[in-house]
Write a protein that binds this DNA or RNA. Sequence first.
RNA 1: GCGCCCGUAGUUCAGCGGAAGAACAUCGGUCUUCGGAACCGAGGGUCGCAGGUUCGAAUCCUGCCGGGCGUACCA
Length: 576
Amino acid sequence: MTDLHSHLSTRLLAATTELGIESTAAEPLLRLDPPKNRDHGDVALGAFQLAKLAGKAPPALAAELAAKITPDDVVEAAVAAGPFVNFKFRRSALARAVLTAIARNEAPYGKATGNGDVVCIDFSSPNIAKPFHIGHMRSTVLGNALCRIHRHLGATVHGINHLGDWGMPFAKMMTAYMRWGNETELHRSPMRYMFDLYKRYGQEVKQNPALDDEAAKHFQALESGADNVERRMWRLLRDESLKAFQGPYTRLGVTFDHVTGESFFEDKMEAAMQRVTASGVLEDSDGAQVVWLKELGIKEPCLLRKSDGTTLYHTRDLAAAFYRETTFHPTRILYVVGAEQKLHFDQLKGVLTKMKEPIAKAVEHVPFGLVLSKTEDGKWEKFASRSGNAVFLDEILDEAVNKVRSIIREKNPDLPNADEVAEQIGTSAIVFNDLKNSRIKDVKFDWESMLNFDGETGPYVQFACARLSSILRKVEVPVPSVDAIDWSLLADAERVLLTMMDFGTAVQRAAEQSEPSHVTGHVIALAGEIHSYLRDHYVVGAEPKVRDARLVLVDAARRLLVTGLGLLGIPAPERM
RNA sequence: GCGCCCGUAGUUCAGCGGAAGAACAUCGGUCUUCGGAACCGAGGGUCGCAGGUUCGAAUCCUGCCGGGCGUACCA
């Protein structure tokens, strides 16, 4: 909500009151939305519900409202179009309001101060007994963006990497290593070596299902808490995996506030189980301990302890929820985990609900779709790690970076720090592709469209930033103060300004819906508008007053694009 | 079987009660360009199908069809 909007809202409220509509009823109906087609106006009001309130036909009321909103120094025109009223702001007021706020880094363009929310974001959370591949990137990249978005809006954010360093997958890795492993080879290339072990286990267990029993025994021994060989193995393998993950995290610019894996809750699960028992919802079933959730519409019970006495994923997530509640007092706990685990989180929330734990309502699964790759015959299929053709994330990033490097050699051979920039652009292309569409959609991982840097891609937006930076360098005059600008000279920039005005809504919606793609979409739109504008409006060489006004616009566009990309965890090089 | 998700232009997607959109691909353009990694334009759509609710449905409800995911001792 900008000053422009609140000014218009105030006038509309006065107008509806004059038309005899009760103000408390009218106020929530005065929603100003961008019209479908911006040629209609800057913002529009649908008069449907107000008309019902007034007992009039929508087009009639729209006309009456339009007549009441006479022009002033902010509103230029109010025009009824059927049941809608379309409003147009004065161009100079529009430019002043938007560009001043951006230049002063005021919210929503700049970071807001404490909004009172405390948001825990559980993301990335790879299973460290498996290689870090392309599938892990979605949670990592989405969670990272959500952390940045919430921080921008003034929330206190706890980004948590809930590593899968406990449980059966880890026990299987341990079993494989104890049977066939070799410490020298492990240290040489931990991730690759562990992946080989993982594959070998998968093959051998087909011939020898008893391997799983062996793994279960090892897990039991590990969970006994004794300082035994399993404990030492666990420490070794965990440390090596952690080191190996640091590479991708660094390249993607991802950091965590807390790296507390499942093992962190080893000594907190008993207390959690006691709490469940005390609440009276725990039942025995075939030797296991479960919570039934049929009354909540969930048929499958939530298992909290296996018949062999060991714990499960759910047990640890429950302990983690209690721990986060007392440690952080979160208003929301977001679990950025694939859609295939929906049932798991429905159950987690269900158990907490059945226990009447207040934290239940903070628990929010943020599901996302799979990463698909194209097969030889043109169909889409899941990136599989078990079939042995896992593509390591590092290799994918390398391929993108190499491709970008050759493009730079071709288009900008004199770029001094070409390798560094290629790394930024290449990794961003992959990240951007992951954040472009609604998270629930599967990502179609298609080299051709991702490395084709035309259209709605990361490099397209980054290029817009670089182009704006270039102009600011070339003009050889500092960006003037917003106090000295003749805003009427920016009447021709209305499309850019109106797009800028949408930034706040995009970020807000991204946070509410846990949907970073709203920010991605906004940044694409703004890059497009500024590119169009620059075609016909020169900065360098324009007469001083015009140049100054355009400089403020160019500077604001650059800042807003850098901010938007920053919210997505994407860098914006000055040159590329 | 049951549950959940997805189905909009050739392709990838946005829109999710109020005025059908973008990108890619295709075709045609842009006084050598403050960075052409750009811009402008054209063609291309019974919004999976059928009912219902509504003054109004791509959007909400129901039932189908197609695809995907999940369905207690893995995570």
